[in-house]
Design a binder for these strands. Sequence first.
DNA 1: ATACTGAGGATTTTT
DNA 2: TCCTCAGTAT
Length: 833
Amino acid sequence: MTASGPLADPRKQPRDDEFDIPFDLPATAPAGAPAPAPIPAPRPGGIAARAQALANPGRGEPSRGVYLDGLNPEQREAVEATDGPVLVLAGAGTGKTRVLTTRIAHILSLGLAWPSQILAVTFTNKAAREMKERIHAMVGEEVEGMPWLGTFHSIGVRMLRRHAELVGLKSGFTILDTDDQIRLLKQLLRAENIDEKRWPARLLANIIDGWKNRGLSPQQVPAGEGAAFANGRGQKLYTDYQARLKALNAVDFGDLLLEGIRLLRENPDVLADYHRRFRYILVDEYQDTNVAQYLWLRLLAQGSRNVCCVGDDDQSIYGWRGAEVDNILRFESDFPGAKVVRLERNYRSTGHILGAAAHLIAHNEGRLGKTLFSEGENGEKVTVTGAWDSQEEARAIGEEIEALQREGHALTQVAILVRASFQMREFEDRFVTLGLNYRVIGGPRFYERAEIRDALAYLRVIASPADDLAFERIVNVPKRGLGDAALRQIHDHARAAQLPLIEAARELVGSEELKPKVRLTLRDLVASFDRWREQMATLPHHELAEIVLDESGYTEMWQKDRSADAAGRLENLKELVRSMEPFENLIGFLEHISLVMDVDSGNGGDAVNIMTLHSAKGLEFDTVFLPGWEEGVFPNQRALDEQGRAGLEEERRLAYVGITRARRRAKVFFASNRRIHGLWQSAVPSRFLDELSEKDVEVTESRGGSGWGGGQGGGYAGRYGYGPSRFDQAETFGSSYSTPGWQRAQNAAKSGSGFSEGRSRYAASESARGGRIIEGELIAKSTGAPSRFAIGDRVFHQKFGYGEVSSVEGNKLTVQFDKAGEKKVVDSFVDAA
DNA sequence: ATACTGAGGATTTTT
DNA sequence: TCCTCAGTAT
């Protein structure tokens, strides 16, 4: 097996023998070791033996290890129930990961299985990495013998590479990401003469993904659904798409599972091998599994039936991408005789936070029901604060954070969790003004950046010349005069001669068909690729990457670019090259990148975390700010429109996830007016606010004193008003929140001074003026050392690019940025241009 | 082949 | 409002 099956840690050179060992022998067994059938004895001196010795000083009875100490009774029950199916319902902060990792350590130390006989699946690489680290902490090096610890996708690839021929692929198949997928679909749509305006490729990609999530092959698509796209051509397009993938020897992410299912179903011998191999199966975040993943798991679990799924139905927030909460709700009937363990003891949050969250989530109907409790203090109440508009919301949160900072709290322990990323901007702008360090988590991913994808495309063409999608991507990047016309010629020839694009190009160069200029350029390009491919054998791959980027003119292209982000892009390219170093070779790196494509974002010191609620799942912070709790924003209007009650319940689970991220302080905000897509809209507080238990909530005024009902000349309360909405009539709204601010707001709402469409525009300009006044005060207060910049200076800012200083007040500058417009920034954030 | 212009669309995200 | 994409003008 030289075409490299990926290992759980792709940075290790794939071992040649990995797949040649019979499945019922452990991959890690030393040569000549006895086969551990049916139950392997602990190897002398092995981890299991050591653990047993530790656990049972003076006794021969192997039952209990030190690692079990400190588990509560339920956790211990979940760890020790090794036989048969187990469902662990683990509420937020109840030690879910701990149970999972301890269970693995337990299985290993009792010698119930070799490391290579345990299948442990997670959703994200991050989760897999963490699990691996924690197991390592418990059992040491033995974790290195666990090749089947990984994400659904990485394990899927591993199986497919081994048996590629059985599903019509070659082992070196490439994995397409969403971008490649869409470009391919665009080609298909064009070939079918389908109007891409009416039937966008992106939509088709989503539909196909949806089918794949549900485990449906083209033939299995329900007739009605297959007809829904492009006047009945959906199913045909799906079929064509799969055919194209096969022709390219490629798969998309969905195929990694779908083809895996097909492989197991159509090849009983292969399935039987895996049944023998996997004595124990563990699944993290089971509530997030989709139908395909469920089917895949069920196939594999039919062997040993020792399957342990850990999840929390209340934290199922990925329904929109195919996750089926049903999978967890149905576990007991899917796996008869299953043991269900509930973990309800929360180790993370204070009583008030838990109480508020529990009361909220109790409004959902379809749930298994858990009641979290903690033995800690009640702590601070959850606060609910109204702001006039989103700018003021950001200002109020900024001030609270500065206050926390003054009290000595670390910014890394503060998070702002938003529903949608458009909400982040307001905070970024505000924090730039304040000079408050922040980091956005989850934004555009490293690998999605154009420059990274371009660089990778070059490397892909070098590594696998038949990668047409990669070739297409970079054939004219940087611009070298090989435009549409030239590409079409190459395409035509490739199709006629049945060759990959780059080979077709090579032949065309030798003919008279191309214009002389094009011919020369293309000849150079083909020659360059030949040269690079030769160098692949002699040069370390990261050096090769550097050479490729330089010689292709790619680096130069960005060096010449004067736009704001060019510097950052060059930095990203350097980072990419750096990240290649630990890998054994180019192939290994590309394999890793196609599945992981995630570079550890260097923890840039003390900074506030800004992220979406979705990406906050699994994390925890001392203080959590939850802005934007308004009807339409959260719960999100589209979720309600498209998914109805199910959508509302998922939004509510999202709210639950948000609150339960907080250890000590949860602070909810809403704004009465918000600009959405450039239009000011008056907003109604989210129904979720009223679903928080009053005993755990305190309604406060925004700290800046300029909130609704607050200060700033006492101006806002009178102008404040809700637009007409069903929420106004809702009975729950007549709640007895009793702070002055809340009551004033209610009075204002009842007095009928709600804004009409026209007046909400008026409100917008008023609020904008209010904003500047506040900002003026702040700036006036913060005059520090005189700035090193003067009016008229040219400056460069990491985020906004080049600009000219138009005013200087202390260390705060007002800069007219060429691209980003006028911004106020702290001078330490800019450099002289 | 590239630069400009106007329309349209704009959640959530992993692999 | 602001960004992306497609189509047109140079």
